[in-house]
Simulated assay, not measured.
Amino acid sequence: MELQRNLGRLDRIARGVLGVWLVAGAISAVRDDRTTTAAALTVAGAGLLFNARTGFCGCSAALGIDTTSSGAESAE
């Protein structure tokens, strides 16, 4: 299955930074013995890191949102 990119550069950077921040929060939660919080932060962070790496977001695709420069040009 090929994922068509629908995230622009700035969107990918923001998701990557937030994903790393959430994973760091998950590590902190594990150290404080808050496993449920750690699991939720890990899943959210991993999802954002996947989005940042692949340039694809399933929710954006379902809503028809394309922040790539080619997508913005084709919408005009």
Rank of each mutant, 00 (worst) to 15 (best):
D33G: 07
V17C: 08
F50L: 02
V20N: 02
V43A: 15
G64S: 06
R34W: 14
S60R: 03
S28G: 12
A14E: 07
D33H: 15
A44N: 10
A24V: 11
G16R: 00
S28Q: 15
A24W: 08
V43G: 10
Q4R: 11
V43W: 13
S28H: 14
T36V: 15
G19Q: 03
G64A: 06
R34Q: 15
A72H: 09
A44R: 03
D66T: 01
A46D: 09
I27T: 09
R53C: 08
L41I: 08
A52H: 00
L63T: 04
G71Y: 00
C59A: 13
G58A: 14
I27Y: 11
R34S: 13
A72P: 01
G45C: 10
D11Q: 04
A61T: 06
R31S: 14
G47M: 07
V23E: 04
L3C: 06
F50Y: 14
I13Y: 07
D33A: 14
M1P: 10
C59E: 10
R12C: 00
T42E: 08
L18W: 04
A14G: 05
G47N: 12
A14T: 07
G58Q: 11
V17R: 03
I65A: 01
A52N: 01
L63G: 04
N6C: 09
S74N: 12
R53E: 02
T68H: 04
G8S: 10
A40D: 10
R53H: 09
T67D: 02
L3P: 02
T35Q: 13
S60C: 14
R15E: 01
S60V: 01
S28E: 14
A29T: 06
D11K: 01
T37C: 06
S70Y: 00
D66H: 01
T42I: 07
C57W: 00
V30T: 12
G45F: 08
L18P: 00
W21M: 14
G19S: 07
A29L: 09
G19D: 04
A52S: 11
T68C: 06
R9I: 07
C59V: 10
T67A: 02
Q4L: 11
R34C: 10
D32E: 15
V30D: 04
T68R: 05
C59L: 12
G55Q: 06
I27D: 05
A39S: 13
S60T: 01
E76C: 09
I13M: 10
T36A: 15
D66V: 01
D66M: 02
V20G: 07
I65S: 01
V20E: 03
A61V: 05
R9S: 07
T37P: 05
L7F: 07
G25H: 05
S74F: 09
G25R: 03
L63S: 08
F56L: 08
G71L: 02
M1I: 12
V17H: 03
L63Y: 13
